[in-house]
Every structure is written in C-alpha cells, then in structure tokens.
Computed example of a mutant assay.
Amino acid sequence: MELSDCKLGAQSQLVCSGCRNLLLYPVGATSVCCAVCNAVTAVPPPGTEMAQLVCGGCHTLLMYIRGATSVQCSCCHTVNLALEANQVAHVNCGNCRMLLMYQYGARSVKCAVCNFVTSVGVPTSTTEQKFST
C-alpha cells in the first residue's frame, strides 16, 4: 500500500497501547505501529463500535468497545464507569462552576478540580425523569 493510498482512503483512530497517543490508521489495517513509542497496537475487528472516555484517575484518554460497563486504565489501573450518553446528566460545581457529569440517580457529585461536593436535587425536567429509572 502506498502512502498516498493512506492519505486518500478512509481512516479510523485508536489509542496507542504504549504511550496512549491517538493514532490514525487506514481502514483495513490489522495493527498500527506508533511513530512516537514504536508500540504495535492491534486494530479491533471491523464493525466493532468504539467509544472514548477520560480516565478519572490520571486523565488519560481511554478507548473501549461500546457497551462496556467499566474500563480499567492501563496506566493507573483506575476502574472507570463507562456510561452511555442517556445515562448521565450535567451540573455546574457549586464552588468553581466547572461543568460536572454524573450518573442519573446520584444524590451528589464531587468536583475533580476543587473537591467540592455538589448536591444533585430531584430531577426537574421530563427528560431527566425519563432516563433516571
């Protein structure tokens, strides 16, 4: 495969298994060699839907197979909840106003920036009530 084929063809992305950098690769590749750390990362099988989240322990970008309920970070070993968009809500921190994400049904959420615990009231919108059950 010529380099120009890679630039013109469809590309996908994954996270390097070595240094955690985001890698672009041509669709159809079975593995990708990282230009930064030379680690070889296997490409998930075609049709596998992937999702991303940021580790709550070390803030590393993690990529995982969509539908997983938790993802363990390979850097700091923190187990992160992998929630779908309809399972989470947002609130501003009561202290620093940082936008926080929390799981429906939670009574409070702790800010990772200032450690303030913001109480989350009873859902008030019909959208929140729909997804909170």
Rank of each mutant, 00 (worst) to 15 (best):
P46G: 13
V79S: 09
T133L: 12
M50C: 11
C33I: 08
P46W: 00
C16I: 10
P26A: 12
P44E: 02
P26N: 07
L99T: 14
A89V: 10
C73W: 08
L53N: 00
M98P: 01
L24N: 08
T118L: 03
S108I: 04
T127Y: 15
D5S: 10
L14N: 06
A85T: 05
N21M: 11
T48K: 08
C55T: 02
L22P: 08
M63W: 00
L83K: 14
T133A: 13
T30I: 07
K130R: 12
N38G: 00
V120P: 06
V117P: 02
V91T: 15
N95M: 13
C16L: 09
G121M: 01
V71G: 07
S17Y: 02
H90K: 15
T60F: 04
L8N: 14
Y102F: 15
G57C: 03
N92Q: 10
T124N: 08
V71F: 00
Y25R: 00
Y25W: 00
S74M: 05
H59R: 14
H90I: 00
L8R: 14
N21L: 13
M1C: 14
T48I: 00
V91R: 13
Y104F: 14
E84R: 12
A112H: 05
G28S: 01
E84D: 07
Q13H: 11
S4R: 12
T133K: 15
V32G: 04
Y25K: 02
T118G: 08
N115F: 11
T126S: 12
T41C: 01
L61R: 13
M50P: 03
V32Q: 10
G47C: 11
C34N: 05
F116E: 11
E84K: 13
G18A: 09
V71Q: 08
L62A: 11
L3E: 10
T69G: 12
L62Y: 02
G57V: 01
G94C: 03
Q87K: 13
